[in-house]
Each structure stands twice: as C-alpha cells, then as structure tokens.
Design a protein around this nucleic acid. Sequence first.
DNA 1: CGAGCCTTTGACCTACGTCAACTCATGTGG
DNA 2: CCACATGAGTTGACGTAGGTCAAAGGCTCG
Lengths: 232, 232
Amino acid sequence: MTTSRTQALAGVPLFGGLEEIELASVAGDASVRRAASGRAFFRAGEAATRVYVLVAGRVKVTEVSPEGHEVILRVNGPGDLFGGVAALVDGSEYPVTARALETSEALAWSGQVMLALMRRFPVVAINAARLVALRLHALQRVHHELMTDRVERRIARAVLRLAREAGRRVESGVEIDFPLSRQDLAQMTGTTLFTVSRTLSGWQSEGLVTTARRRVVVCQPERLVRIADDLS
Amino acid sequence: MTTSRTQALAGVPLFGGLEEIELASVAGDASVRRAASGRAFFRAGEAATRVYVLVAGRVKVTEVSPEGHEVILRVNGPGDLFGGVAALVDGSEYPVTARALETSEALAWSGQVMLALMRRFPVVAINAARLVALRLHALQRVHHELMTDRVERRIARAVLRLAREAGRRVESGVEIDFPLSRQDLAQMTGTTLFTVSRTLSGWQSEGLVTTARRRVVVCQPERLVRIADDLS
DNA sequence: CGAGCCTTTGACCTACGTCAACTCATGTGG
DNA sequence: CCACATGAGTTGACGTAGGTCAAAGGCTCG
C-alpha cells in the first residue's frame, strides 16, 4: 500500500523538505519490515545493506564487546532513522544491533537505493548528515556525564530523558512507555542492575517514582531534576 | 592563493568524488583561518556559523559541563572536518570548543555556503553524513569502553589510538606527535591525572613506553595491545 | 502450575578518586 | 645568562562509591 507508506513518511525528519509527490516516490522504493518484541532488525557484524525508518514501536540499539558486555546506545521511537549510519559506508558491517523492545514496524531501503535517493534529492543527504550530527551531540552529552557524574545522577538523567522522549501521562505522573528493566537502565548508564535497583528503591521510598517489573513512572520530575542538576 | 587552497583540499574526505574544477570552485569559497597553539577556532556556545577543514596542525575538540568539567572528545589532524556538525543545524550553537594544540591552519566555509555546496554537489552532503557517521561509531566504541573497562585498559586504548592516528616513528618506537599531558589523557579516558601518572610510570618502569613532559613514546606496542585486549 | 526472569537486599571488598607535599623542567624577563 | 615563577609530573596516605557475589522472594507467561 504505497499511499499508506507515503503517509507514514510525512513528518519524518529524514525526508523533510520533500514534496508530496517526491515522498510518494521515496515510499515506493521502500519495503516494510516488522519485528516482534525481542527480535532484531539487524545484528552487529551483519553486512550493512539497509537503512531503516521506524514507523511504529520501539527499537533499542545496542553494542556488544568481544567480551560479551552489552551496552544500550539509544532507544528509537517512531520517525527515527536507524541503521542508516552504517549502510552509507558501502561494503561495511553494522557496528550495532537493533532489537525491537515491543512489536515494531519499519520502512527499509537498500543502501544503494538510499544513495541514489540522496543524489536525486540532496536535501535527504543533508537531513541525514544533520540527524547523525544530532545523534553525535546527544552521545557526546551522555559520554560527558559518564565521565564526570556519579551514578545516581546518571540514572536520574537517563530516566528523565526516557520520560521526555517516550513518556505517557498517567494519573500518578509520567510513565515510560515501554518495558524497561533495571538491567536496561544499567546498560544505559554504565552501572550494574544492583545499583540501579537500590537507587530506584530509594527514590520510590521518597515518592519520586513508582516502579514495577519493567515499568517506571516518574511522579515528581522536579525532584528528579534536582538530583540530575544538583550544583552542590 | 586559490590554487594552493585547491591543493590543500585534494584528498580531503569531505570532498572526495569532486572533479578538480569543482574542487577549485569549492576552494574559492573558503577562507583561511589560523590559530596559534592554545587559541580556539571556536568555543562552545558561540553561534555555529562556520564549517572547518583542518589543513595543518592539531585541534582538540572539548566539551565543558556547567560545573566546569572539561572532557576531550577528539583530536583532529590534517584533512579532518570539524565544526561542521553543528553549522548544518541552522541557528544553532557549537556544542563544543575547538582549540589548537599547536599552530594550526584550517579552511572555513559559512554554514550557508556549505549548504549551497551540498545542494550543488550532493556527494559532499553524502560524504558529510558518512564522516559524521564514522565519528559517531568511534565515539560509540569509546563510550562502550568507558562503561565496561578498567582505567588501565582505557588509557592503553587511548594511547594506542593516538599513536596510530598521530604517531611518528622515532628510534625507540612511535612518538605521539603533539604535546599530550597526563591531564589530557585523563580527560580523554574519564580518569584523573594522578591515575594516568601512576599508570604511565608503571608502564615506563616495564619498558612499555618512555615519557617526558607532555611527550609519550610507545616502545612496545604489542604489550600495550595485550593490556588493551586482555581477555583474561 | 511451574520455570524462568526480574527484582531486592545484605555483606564484603577494591579500584580509583581525593588531597597534600614535593621535585623538576622550562621559558621568561631582568 | 641566570633566577625565579609557573606549570607538569610524582608519590604517598586515605576514604569511599559502587562493583561483586550470594541468597531468596514474587511476577507472568507459557
């Protein structure tokens, strides 16, 4: 259904600046990929053949070292570009794994097709550069935090970021809208699930958050911000 | 001297794929910027108006937090793009500071001009996306290390990277070819100058490296690699 | 209903940060 | 050209944030 694919692309940053008819052409070149919760769109080490734009769901992007240590670099939501980074470097491999956190759907283009699109519509290439640049900036900030901040602050920042990007209003506050384990938070903040557990327990007993198995609700964002920004 | 500027651009990755005559046109739009050792090409927070390609020297890219903690994100050498990332996001500010480690020279374009170049020569936009992507990958690896590795290994990796990217053969091994203090290494690896000092002292007494004030020579790279990759 | 996950909590330990004191180059100016 | 001020580096003593490991309880989903 090309028309529905075209609609899915409306408002996607990668294609900002394209006319509707151009969008339809771009959509025509796409294929639809789905992944059930826990399944991977691609894994690190595979040939980087495709560029994805997430249409629905959540996808975590992780990197695992030779030793087997896995870290979470980012959680993508609808509209986000992923895999694109590597597919432009031709003949290369994905350096990361993209795994669905819940049932997800994406549009995909082969690297070749995407390169052709970029040559035809330079604005797409410019958008891509800008998007990757923004991602780089975001990672630079997280990296800085990791170098200089204590764990409680890092966890606070991670939770606030997730609430901002993937928050859903509920009675008691803002719930992070996908399953998020202590282990996940640990892999985002460079600590252990034990420390995350202790930290969240502490916050919960102070009323800052309420938690359940793989669920986090931020109840008092401003107090969390105080922890995140504390200048003392 | 447009012709010398054109020569400076030959082989620069950002402009790979351009014809000589196109290169000359690109060079014609550039201005030359110089910075003495210690001076900044731009500082974090300034309006991001220009894109730079380093022609000669070394430039360290740093980020400083509100608390005043400074971390080194990268050291650029000749041919490297810097500042480009932000200048594409129009109306934005540089998120980082670019400071010359030694007397340096760069070519610069305004963001406007660079955008126009990218529209005219889509390959430049594609190159830019690719370059930023590569930088993102590099930062992802470092970030991973910071999350999972002990300091000695991180320092070993940083030293090896610098030797690879900016090494000069000397009698006793490979010297890192720009002034590099313990503090610098600490700000690259997320530790303190004290720990770096102790670590280098240890290595020196084992004959792995020789050091002097702001100078590091790698004498036994393979043993350093053993520390960096130790799978025990 | 049962088998795994996810989570909690406690006890212990250590890698590394912090601070202080000292030495040694270096480059600057008198 | 020497002297001194300054910034780089070293080393020791000490404290602690948070990692590690073990044990056990509770969801949930098959």
